[in-house]
Nucleic acid binder design. Structure first.
Length: 521
RNA sequence: GGCUCCGUGGCCAAGUGGCUAAGGCAACGGAUUGCAAAUCCGUCAUCGUCGGUUCGACUCCGACCGGAGCCUCCA
């Protein structure tokens, strides 16, 4: 079954066909680096990182570009507020962005072009557009001429007439059409400025992406991604200016990810038959609360770094991928904690595997290409048949517009299969059927192969080693020994007291037939 | 007002024109355990409402109700 991708341009899933066979060029609109990233900024990178992993696994050679917008009104304003230069602010926030990507295990980005380093390329595009009649200078600015662009609006499904009807904002004096947007903005004194044929100024918002995508990936790219909020006007305008400039299709597939939303917004509770919301006062309050809860642009949205202090980044990544990328994600601490609980089961399985097989799940060697991933054979046949079936289902989900939610479901099924296998053959006990361990390893290897495409379970968790030099474990072994003696003497009151007190300290004991294990949490 | 999109079990969330509507969290029953924990086995939905198309719809179309986003340089 071929890979299918939902294309915003056609509003449907299409068979995936690249411009150049075997290669994929991918451009994702990156951040304007004016404030610390919040969780919403990580959605795109995590999703497209996963997409790249899957495409690479599927045999494509992928080049992925994410731009850094380091000149913009927001930057100028913020820098002024903080009393620092635009460059200093941009540098600081870019580093913040990079740190967050690393923590989120997003490592597939090949190029990070900076807007300020591509002014020349932008000016070239603007000059070409003027030459072709798609743009006109006006008092030091340059505007794109929307009316000249026959299919303007094709991405977001708007027509110029509609936009005219909806606009009541005053338009810049000489603009020929209210929808015309700035390619070049003449600068006011004190603002960052570059020389240009139209006077000193800085680039408009959309032109940077056109310029950098063209320079690094060529006139026609395969995948252009970004948040749904960028579809209009950003992507629409980017598309318009790029195609008007080159006369070629700009991007084959436009992919838009859903936006992060804070949960607890009024109206969500009550199931729709709640009459309380009908009173105007409540409606107003609800609206206000929604604004406050809205993540995008909200000053109150927690930074990613702050979030990392409360949740494991792997959990956050898994959480983001458990929902389809085109759906809005309902974000809350509770949701993430729930995901954390779900992941516990995997970590338990990895520990069990290490006890059973004597080597770490994380050190298993796996196929990194679909073509290298062989169909599994072995005994028991039913078990191997199931493994192959799960693998098939997983790839089928991913082939269907990168349905990571479905793929995640398969991972849980695989976990269950492996746990059942361990249970059936008593592998985690003194009476283990040792001959079955290689079969377990085959299943664990499959689990790792599939998980790696999502960018999870890549390496073992750091065991808070910084604050513990082994003293705690030594102490725990002592306590466990004392408790074991008590149990042997049927002094369960003492044994239970120890266990309960440890529970209060967030330490859990597991009595197995041959030993007692402990863990935090 | 215009343009997109969504409404699946207590909560979250995949999916499909007809064969058992994934999975997670929670809950419940059983196995196991001194009791727990972990694990295993099992139970728990007719898919917002009303119409229509169809041999057949949760899946397609329409209306309605409810929700979200964009139309204001937010990923």
């Amino acid at each position: 079954m071929p890979l299918r991708v939902y294309n915003t341009l056609s509003r449907q899933k299409e068979d995936f066909q690249t411009v150049e066979s075997g290669k994929v060029s991918m451009y994702l609109c990156g951040p304007t680096v004016y404030k610390p990233a919040h969780i919403g900024h990580m959605v795109g990178p995590v999703i497209f990182d996963t997409i790249k992993r899957y495409l690479t696994y599927s045999g494509y050679n992928v080049t992925w570009v994410v731009n850094i917008t380091d000149v913009d009104d927001k930057l100028i304003n913020r820098a002024n507020e903080k009393g620092i230069t635009v460059e200093a602010l941009a540098k600081e926030m870019t580093q913040d962005y990079f740190d967050n990507l690393k923590t989120m295990a997003v490592d597939g980005i090949d190029h990070f072009p900076y807007a300020t380093q591509h002014i020349k390329e932008m000016q070239e595009i603007i000059a070409t557009l003027i030459e072709k009649g798609f743009a006109y200078p006006l008092d030091g600015d340059v505007y794109f001429n929307c009316t000249r662009d026959e299919d303007y609006g094709k991405l977001s499904g708007r027509s110029l007439e509609q936009m005219l009807a909806g606009t009541r904002a005053e338009t810049h004096g000489g603009k020929r059409h209210p929808a015309d947007f700035a390619l070049w903005k003449g600068s006011k004194p004190g603002e960052p400025a570059w020389e240009s044929p139209w006077g000193p100024g800085r680039p408009g918002w959309h032109i940077e992406c056109s310029a950098m995508a063209k320079k690094i990936l060529g006139d026609s790219i395969d995948i252009h991604g970004g948040g749904l909020d960028l579809m209009f006007p950003h992507h629409e305008n980017e598309l318009a200016q790029s195609e008007s400039c080159t006369g070629k299709p700009f991007a084959r597939y436009w992919m838009h990810n859903g936006l992060m939303q804070a949960s607890g917004t009024p109206g969500k509770v009550g199931g729709g038959h709640d009459k309380q919301g009908d009173r105007p006062a409540d409606l107003a309050a609800a609206k206000e609360a929604q604004e406050a809860n809205k993540l995008a642009g909200s000053k109150g949205a927690a930074s990613v770094k702050e979030l990392f202090s409360r949740h494991d980044p792997e959990t956050i990544r898994f959480f983001l991928l458990a929902t389809h990328y085109r759906s809005p994600i309902d974000f809350s601490d509770e949701r993430i904690s729930e995901t954390g609980k779900a992941l516990e089961g995997f970590y338990r399985l990895f520990e069990t595997y290490e006890r059973v097989a004597g080597n770490s799940f994380y050190s298993l060697k796996v196929a990194t290409k679909r073509s290298e991933s062989a169909v599994l054979h072995g005994e028991p046949a039913a078990y191997f048949h199931e493994l192959n079936e799960l693998r098939r289902r997983y790839l089928e989900s991913m082939d269907d517009d990168f349905n990571t939610g479905g793929a995640v479901g398969v991972l849980f099924d695989l976990r269950k299969t492996l746990n059942a296998f361990i249970s059936d053959h008593k592998l985690d006990s003194a009476s283990a059927e040792k001959g079955q361990v290689p079969s377990l390893t085959a299943g664990m290897t499959l689990l790792k192969e599939l998980a790696l495409m999502l960018g999870v379970f890549r390496e073992a968790k750091q065991k808070a080693a910084s604050t513990d030099d082994g003293t705690l474990d030594g102490l725990m072994q002592l306590v466990i020994q004392i408790r074991a003696d008590a149990r042997k003497n049927k002094n369960f009151a003492v044994a239970d007291l120890i266990r309960n007190k440890l529970n209060e300290l967030k330490i859990t004991l597991e009595d197995r037939t041959d030993q007692t294990l402990w863990r935090k949490g």
